[in-house]
């Protein structure tokens, strides 16, 4: 039955997540409301055009306005629009607020591919593998220009912006293959910047995690063949031999890059603040302002260390450019700091 991402005919894509179900409810409400108003306006127009066409002996009536009627067609749409707004906001909140236990995957967009970086250290290109019925949160950034991560079956989308982290979350409920599009124009091969999400049953997911052969069952897309061909040619998916968990990669990186000379992992202050227990907490800055330590703050503090200096420390850290620490490495370092509770 579910052999393609798009429902047959002119309907919406299949409902791959609970958010999609809520979204479709709102969509169809708007759809039928629009049909009603379209019939009212255009039907009324056609009816008037026929009934009141110019005829011998028939004169037009002199009507200038009708305040009651005008008030009605001002007030009723206003009320309806407010209802639509509130409903839209309600569904939107569900779309953008991930549950706290969501599994995290890091996404890096670059011209013209998607890299997915898993907690266990794996790095895959254009293929995101997730377990079914588990909330998944994507932490996304770009290495070059704007991109946008769009999964029609899950009805979620967010721009992917260089220099900051944005998120998208979903809980897949249909196993199989789901299409990902880049939806922010990013240059020559924008239309080739595609990826697939593979939603696996728990047992198959465990096999994948263990790096063993697994089978993908469930929905397929018509264009699966295209992707299968590309995969066979080794074009779009590569499994990196590196399978050290992401936080451990980060630990190695901060040692290799010399960060530990100034930053401890045990809570003791050196030249700079310790990594321990800072993630998700507030830090007081030299200028008295407070900032929550999150992905954006850590990334900024590595790229531009003087921008927001923690109180009690001197602004002596040199900046680290993308050539020195790549976005992929950045993700590992953040995962490491995050793991030091």
């Amino acid at each position: 039955m579910l052999n393609q991402i798009y429902t047959k005919g002119a309907g919406l894509p299949l409902q791959g997540s609970d958010v999609a179900v809520a979204w479709d409810g709102l969509y169809w409400f708007l759809f039928w409301l629009s049909v009603f108003f379209f019939v009212l306006v255009v039907g009324g127009m056609i009816y008037f055009a026929i009934v009141y066409r110019q005829r011998e002996g028939k004169k037009a009536k002199y009507i200038v306005d009708n305040h009651l009627l005008e008030a009605t067609w001002t007030v009723i749409p206003t009320v309806l629009l407010l209802v639509i707004f509130a409903w839209g906001w309600n569904v939107y909140k569900r779309m953008v607020q991930p549950p706290s236990d969501a599994m995290e995957v890091r996404v890096i967009g670059k011209q013209w591919l998607w890299n997915f970086q898993y907690e266990d250290g794996r790095l895959e290109t254009n293929k995101l593998v997730v377990p079914i019925h588990k909330p998944v949160k994507l932490l996304m950034t770009s290495e070059d220009v704007l991109h946008s991560f769009f999964i029609p079956n899950f009805r979620v989308k967010s721009d992917v912006v260089p220099g900051m982290y944005t998120t998208v979350w979903f809980e897949a409920k249909v196993p199989g293959e789901h299409q990902v599009f880049c939806t922010e124009y990013c240059g020559t091969s924008h239309s080739g910047m595609l990826a697939k999400i593979e939603v696996l049953e728990p047992a198959q997911y465990e096999l994948w995690k263990a790096n063993k052969p697994y089978t993908l069952s469930g929905v397929r897309t018509i264009s699966s063949d295209i992707f299968a061909a590309r995969r066979a040619a080794g074009e779009s998916t590569q499994l990196k031999s590196e399978t050290i968990p992401l936080p451990e990669q980060g630990k190695k990186l901060v040692e290799a890059k010399g960060c530990t000379a100034c930053h401890s992992a045990d809570g003791s202050a050196r030249i700079g603040p310790s990594y321990k227990g800072i993630f998700g907490h507030e830090a007081e800055l030299a200028n008295g302002e407070k900032v929550t330590v999150d992905e954006n703050y850590i990334s900024e503090s590595i790229r531009k260390p003087q921008a927001k200096v923690v109180k009690g420390f001197n602004p002596v850290m040199p900046p680290y450019t993308k050539e020195m620490i790549s976005e992929t490495e950045m993700n590992a370092i953040i995962a490491y700091i995050k793991s030091l509770k």
Binding site: A22, W23, L26, Y27, L30, S34, F37, F38, L81, I84, F85, W87, G88, W89, N90, V91, Y92, M95, S148, F150, P152, R155, V156, K157, S158, T183, E184
Partner: peptide, 18 residues
Amino acid sequence: LTGVFLATLAIDVHMTDT
């Protein structure tokens, strides 16, 4: 009328840039 779809936050997330 389709403008109202796009003004609605949740709907726009899916529809924008399509």
